[in-house]
Computed example of a mutant assay.
Amino acid sequence: MFTGIVEETGKVASFEKTDAAWKLRLEAKAALAGVAHGDSIAVNGCCLTVVAFDAGHVEFDVLEETRRLTSFSALKPGSAVNLERSLRFDGKVGGHFVTGHIDGLGKIEVLEQRGQDFYLRVRGPGGCGRHLVHKGSIAIDGISLTVAEVEGDALAVWLIPTTMSVTNLREKRAGDPVNLEFDLLGKYVEKLLAGRAPAA
């Protein structure tokens, strides 16, 4: 479990296919504090398991399905990635509850500065509009953000300059893919209501 508060942006050192899996090796600093083999770290919002690490790098195995269904398919050496260690039970929940299980890929339609702030509009996968709530929460590439606008399967958020400077959004452009995770509580409510039998 995570909170969508990015601890640092790491950098892709390598992302290569092996006989067993795709191997993702990242340059990192803050996310390595107290790290152990088997720990969970959110990489662009996707929960991955640490398989190896040293003083300045961390490695993960990535399933082909994960690579194909997430923005990982666009990663290359030098790409910036958002990193967050898993939530401790005695830690702060600064954003919202994020599982690290990506619901779908979004595509950036607009990312531009407006005044001192930044406006980000993302087109989600077909049918995702039912998960979008004005002023609700969403994780975009692992960043906890508040939905400011909803139009069908598209959403918009406003970003403060700090968010742009400390996340990978500073390198994003229109047309780039982003990982989306919709609000966990909303998904549970939808599942609960869908399972109710119709009134007699």
Rank of each mutant, 00 (worst) to 15 (best):
E16V: 14
E16H: 05
E16I: 11
K17W: 01
K17E: 15
K17Y: 00
K17Q: 15
K17F: 00
T18H: 09
T18S: 14
D19H: 10
D19P: 02
D19E: 14
D19R: 14
D19Q: 11
D19N: 13
D19K: 15
A20V: 09
A20P: 00
A21R: 11
W22P: 03
K23R: 15
K23C: 08
K23T: 13
K23V: 13
L24K: 03
L24S: 08
L24N: 01
L24C: 05
L24Y: 04
L24I: 09
R25I: 15
R25G: 03
R25Y: 00
R25W: 00
L26C: 07
L26P: 01
L26R: 00
L26K: 10
L26H: 02
L26W: 08
L26A: 07
E27V: 02
E27F: 02
E27R: 03
A28R: 00
A28C: 09
A28N: 07
A28L: 06
K29I: 09
A30T: 15
A30D: 11
A30P: 05
A30R: 14
A30Q: 13
A30S: 14
A31L: 10
L32Y: 06
L32H: 02
A33E: 14
A33W: 01
G34S: 08
V35M: 03
V35D: 01
V35I: 15
A36N: 12
A36F: 01
A36R: 14
A36P: 00
A36K: 15
H37V: 01
H37F: 02
G38L: 01
D39C: 11
D39L: 09
D39S: 13
S40V: 11
S40A: 13
S40C: 12
S40G: 06
A42E: 11
V43Q: 07
V43I: 14
V43L: 07
V43F: 04
N44M: 08
N44I: 02
N44C: 10
G45P: 02
G45T: 11
C46D: 07
C46K: 02
C46E: 04
C46G: 05
C46W: 04
C47Y: 04
C47H: 07
L48I: 05
T49K: 04
T49D: 05
T49C: 05
V50M: 12
V50D: 06
V50W: 10
V50K: 12
V50A: 10
V51P: 01
V51I: 15
V51E: 09
V51M: 10
F53Y: 14
F53P: 06
F53E: 05
F53K: 09
D54P: 10
D54W: 10
A55D: 14
A55E: 12
A55Q: 10
G56H: 07
G56W: 01
G56L: 09
H57M: 01
H57T: 15
